[in-house]
Amino acid sequence: MDTGTLSFELALTFYLVAAVVGIIELYRSSKVTSSGMFLVAGAGFFVHTLSIIYRYAVAGHLPISSPHEAASFFAWCIVLMFFIIEYHYRVGLLGSFIMPLVFLMMLSSSMLPREIKPLSPVLQSYWFGIHTLFAFLGNAAFALSFGMGIMYLLQERYVKSKHLGGLFRRLPSLQALDEINYRLITIGFPLFTLAIITGSLWADMAWGSYWRWDPREVWSLVTWLIYALILHARLLAGWRGRRAAVLTIMGFISILIAFFGIKLLQKGMHVFL
């Protein structure tokens, strides 16, 4: 096993442990589970970073050129964003919702062919790195807001149903969940928009047209419209709370469809998102 594979497998294992500990934390909270999850997730992030650096060094470009690499890099971005959000807001229990997602993402990555293929000439461009980086960071922010959306719906159910058991006490307030969710979208949306702009500029340079109705492009547009609607409706009509939460969940599902689904339908120029 080479260093790259080893560190990838290690990261996968750490994320699995973090996800399991995170789920245990939901049912039986203790100091061991809450700080343990962070430690294990941190360790996973560290080795994961090593595996990405290794692949970068071997391939000579950002390792997002195959579905395996893309899923792995997506997971990495989510963990990065998770630590940033935790550092700023200390959202209780967020990790319990995010780490299982990270693990599933890594698991799907681990099942895809891993060989490093030379970058096809059309992808050998400056734009490749910029476009994909924007796209992934934006999507990672949306992934986090997906988690916040689920937590919002859960907490709202507790308050509305007037049964204040379960996670009621440990989940943050509804307002906090809603506001952090909004904050994440205001981070993710500009990044995602930049990804679409840089993507079409790049497409123009590579293929001579800005937009080619490639299925992935269409689906990205759908995703973009969902998030644009979330922001628009919030600012103008005060769509917040449950509606915002439901829309962010839908938005992320749309991202997952674009990520995994379209690949199965048709081979476009996008090896990844």
């Binding site: 907490q155 308050v159 009621f168 006490r169 307030s173 509804l174 307002q175 506001e179």
Partner: peptide, 20 residues
């Protein structure tokens, strides 16, 4: 000592889970 056991305290506790 975590759970409010009077109606008024319960109201405050709820307010804190609705508002940040």
């Amino acid at each position: 000592a975590e759970n409010a056991v009077s109606i008024s305290f319960a109201a405050v506790e709820l307010a804190k889970k609705i508002f940040t």
